Simulated scan of single mutants.
Amino acid sequence: MTTAELRENFLISSLFTVGKLEMVYSDVDRVIVGSAVPAGEALKLGVIEELRTEFFLERRELGILNIGANGVVTVDGVEYRMENGDCLYVSRGSKEMTFLSDDNSQPAEFYLASYPAHADHPTTLAKKADAAAVHLGAAESCNVRTIYKYIHPEGIRSCQLVMGYTELAEGSVWNTMPSHTHVRRSEVYMYYDMVDDARVFHYMGEPQETRHLVIGSKEAVISPSWSIHSGSGTAAYKFCWVMGGENQIFDDMDHLGMDQIL
Rank of each mutant, 00 (worst) to 15 (best):
L6R: 13
F10H: 02
L11A: 07
L11N: 09
I12Q: 01
L15C: 02
G19W: 02
G19C: 11
L21Y: 08
M23P: 04
Y25R: 08
S26I: 00
D27W: 10
D27E: 14
V28R: 07
V31P: 02
V31T: 14
I32A: 07
V33Y: 03
P38C: 07
P38F: 00
P38W: 03
L43V: 10
G46H: 13
V47K: 11
E49T: 08
R52W: 02
T53F: 07
E54F: 06
F55H: 13
F56W: 06
R59Q: 14
R59F: 14
R60A: 00
R60H: 10
E61A: 02
I64C: 05
I67K: 00
I67G: 00
A69R: 06
V73N: 04
G77M: 07
G77K: 11
V78M: 07
M82F: 10
E83Q: 13
E83N: 14
N84W: 03
C87S: 09
L88Q: 06
Y89R: 05
R92L: 06
R92M: 12
R92N: 00
K95T: 11
M97C: 14
M97A: 08
L100N: 14
S101T: 10
N104T: 11
S105T: 15
S105F: 15
P107V: 05
A108M: 13
F110E: 13
L112C: 01
L112G: 02
A113R: 09
A113M: 09
P116I: 12
H118R: 12
H118K: 14
A119S: 11
A119F: 04
D120K: 15
T123K: 03
A126V: 14
L136Y: 06
S141C: 15
C142D: 15
N143K: 07
R145F: 02
I147M: 13
E154T: 09
S158K: 03
S158C: 15
Q160V: 15
G164I: 07
Y165L: 04
L168H: 11
G171D: 03
S172K: 09
W174Y: 14
N175S: 15
T176E: 06
P178V: 13
S179Q: 03
H182N: 09
V183H: 14
V183C: 10
R184N: 13
R184L: 11
R184P: 02
R185N: 07
S186W: 02
S186P: 05
E187N: 10
Y192L: 07
Y192P: 02
M194A: 03
V195D: 08
D197L: 13
A198D: 13
R199M: 14
V200F: 05
H202W: 10
P207I: 01
P207Y: 03
E209P: 06
R211D: 11
R211W: 08
L213S: 06
I215P: 04
G216E: 03
V221Q: 05
S223G: 09
P224M: 05
S225H: 14
W226M: 08
S227D: 10
S227I: 03
I228G: 01
I228K: 04
I228A: 05
S230Q: 04
A235K: 01
A236T: 09
Y237N: 01
Y237Q: 00
F239E: 01
F239T: 01
F239C: 02
C240V: 15
M243G: 02
N247Y: 12
Q248W: 05
I249S: 13
D252A: 09
M253C: 07
D259Q: 12
L262F: 15
